[in-house]
Design a protein around this nucleic acid. Structure first.
Lengths: 212, 212
DNA sequence: CGTTCTCTTGATGGGTCTCAATATGCGTGG
DNA sequence: CCACGCATATTGAGACCCATCAAGAGAACG
């Protein structure tokens, strides 16, 4: 999900935490680009279990596939206060073939989502709780790095332990214990919404073996 | 992944079980359409853990996104003896805009993959072993139904218990125990590579609560 | 007709969940 | 400014789901 500039000046909107950017099966004629703040797409089961499917960070296009399907499948909610720009489909189509090719950008974003999903299927299917959390933290830092929000391995991390739990598919209590362990080992520090990688190499190692 | 007919007569190839249709990072100029047999895309960790990312059944396009990226990310291997047809990219592009629109078909297949991945992230993240297996079996039958291979809730099911384990992210020993339980409850029968749904309603119920 | 998969079953241990209680912080309104 | 409520973080105890190890029985296959 790469940053890109449109000729038009799309509306810049403020979104409060916990407000929905999309609801289930909602039709839409625009996509969002995240300027500030974090959002996620999730699926809620009737018995209360929640699984977060995708995270949207500054610079990300939020659900580029809407431009192909015209509707949201699953809800998207702001995890923090946010600023987003709304990009109408017609603007994207109008820019197709230009230097900044709107449609090509959207396809790139979709392919990126695809790869990200594959990775998370492997993590959820075959990795331990510790591996999942380390892989997630590592991922987050690498995704934030291009935005300039990472300074000497410190960066914002506004997710609650409940959010983390619903991303990595374990209970929030166990998330807490894993984080305690990582802190105890001197791998990370995490407080007041800020994450610091104290031992990035160890974090990567704990994140599980690389692909074969 | 819908069936579709091309004007050209693409080559029909026989593929033996365990033969690779694609290897990691391999470049390609064609995609496959499965005519007979089952294949899967998987990711192998250095310590031996394997996670199957996608299943390809008769009628499926195998990795339609290759037409956009030009290369395979992860290996694809035949789980049974197969027949596939190879469709060169140029044929797909040549048919774009026609009654059968090659490119549109590929995009549809990609969107289908996306939805399938989202579903499996939820299953792997938030469902119990029994729920995962029941959901998988239910899925398989529904995907086979349009091909005419399902007769009164009986259909072929050539996956080994090792394969099933690597799809649902549990150990093969536990897959065996869950299957025993399902047989004992009279929900399914599964032998000699054939699956029968003896109590589809119960299977659906065990497959976990529907989306909210 | 042995070899190799595949399936099956038991025993044991560990990773993770659930429940529950307590702390801590933070925003809101009195 | 303080009191209160609510969200979040922390910690313990106990239970359970599932992994791992191991061994044996069929079944498939060259």
């Amino acid at each position: 999900m790469t940053a890109a500039k449109l000729e038009t000046t799309p509306t810049r909107n403020e979104i409060r935490r916990h407000k929905h950017l999309a609801r289930r099966h909602e039709n839409t004629d625009r996509i969002f680009r995240v300027e500030e703040g974090w959002a996620c797409q999730y699926r809620l089961l009737p018995d209360g279990r929640r699984q977060i499917i995708a995270l949207f960070l500054p610079g990300d296009y939020c659900e580029a596939q809407w431009v192909l399907t015209g509707h949201a499948n699953w809800p998207v909610v702001a995890l923090t206060d946010m600023f987003v720009t709304e990009i109408p489909f017609r603007d994207i189509r109008a820019h197709s073939g230009h230097e900044f090719d709107g449609m090509k950008s959207m396809l790139g974003s979709i392919m990126h989502t695809l790869k990200s999903h594959e990775k998370w299927i492997v993590n959820l299917g075959r990795m331990s709780a510790t591996e999942r959390i380390c892989a997630l933290l590592h991922d987050l830092v690498e995704r934030l790095r291009p935005t300039g929000k990472v300074v000497s391995d410190h960066c914002p991390m506004p997710l609650t332990q409940y959010d983390l739990a619903d991303i990595v598919g374990i209970s929030s209590v166990h998330v807490n214990r894993v984080l305690q362990m990582l802190r105890g080992e001197g791998v990370i520090s995490l407080e007041a919404g800020r994450l610091a990688l104290l031992n990035p190499a160890e974090l990567r190692r704990l994140g599980g073996p690389a692909h074969a």
